[in-house]
């Protein structure tokens, strides 16, 4: 698994250029820095770039802190209709978050999908459909929680989720956009690399993180004024879920 996602990131680098071991390590540096504000993260320690690059190599270019953490975890969402919501308490109505898009996609055939799982096409398809369903675009998003099962995966999903121009993920990351004080905060929870990857719970955990910011309940890591967010999850084979959530009116 680490090798598969390492190659997915390397393939992006071959196609568009600009990647390096250090670049992928800096993505991990960002997520671990974010995790220091998340008391629920499995690892909430900040690592220096040198520590990340010097840690145990798992599958080049991913070292141990660049891989999602093995852990147990649980997350849940309660889904109600608009009519049902009106019967609930004012407090529950205030905390409710609108599901503006809910999309699940699977793989179409691609030339190389028999030898390397394709996590790109189905994510791009899901994102396109989600933006259409929600009537919002990437520039409307206040935060994104995406499936950084490995640091190499986060890079390709900047592009797949259309947070940047096609082929522009490296420049986008280098601009600082995806840090929590950037124009498009990504994985302010610390991501799967920090908060852990309890496989079945991961998708809902990403939804929960976005919902928590939209409710204004994210404490020290709150993205101020967050109104719209996107949560992304994939499973190899492949399936992809994208949700766009909006703060209740």
């Amino acid at each position: 698994m680490p090798g598969v996602f390492a190659q997915i990131g390397m393939e992006y680098g071959h196609r568009y250029g600009g990647t390096s071991f250090e670049l992928f390590a800096r993505i991990s540096e960002k997520n671990h820095a974010h995790s220091t504000l998340n008391p629920l993260a499995a690892y909430s320690k900040r690592f220096t770039l040198e520590e990340i690059m010097g840690d145990l190599m798992i599958a080049y270019p991913n070292t141990r802190p660049m891989c999602s953490a093995n852990c147990d975890g649980a997350a849940a969402a309660v889904v109600v209709s608009g009519a049902k919501l009106k019967t609930l308490s004012i407090e529950q109505q205030r905390r409710a978050v609108k599901i503006s898009a809910s999309v699940l996609t699977t793989d179409p055939w691609e030339e190389s999908c028999q030898i390397l799982p394709d996590v790109n096409t189905l994510t791009r398809n899901a994102a396109a459909l989600a933006y259409e369903q929600a009537g919002v675009g990437p520039s409307d998003l206040d935060l994104v929680e995406l499936h950084d099962c490995f640091a190499t995966a986060e890079l390709v999903h900047y592009d797949n989720l259309m947070l940047c121009e096609v082929g522009g993920a490296v420049d986008f990351f280098n601009s600082g956009a995806t840090w929590r004080d950037g124009s498009m905060p990504v994985n302010v929870s610390g991501g799967l690399e920090s908060k852990g990857h309890p496989i079945a719970a991961t998708g809902i955990a990403n939804v929960w993180e976005v919902a928590t910011h939209l409710r204004g309940e994210a404490a020290d890591r709150q993205i101020a004024g967050a109104k719209v967010g996107l949560a992304h999850v994939i499973g190899l084979g492949s399936a992809c879920g994208v949700h766009i959530l909006e703060k209740a009116a």
């Binding site: 680490p2 090798g3 390397m10 145990l56 798992i58 599958a59 080049y60």
Partner: peptide, 19 residues
């Protein structure tokens, strides 16, 4: 087009190898 250098594998699998 893509490669990884696997440094950590199940017992009995010789590492590192390049996939």
């Amino acid at each position: 087009r893509a490669f990884t250098i696997v440094a950590f594998a199940a017992p009995g699998v010789r590492v590192p190898y390049v996939a």
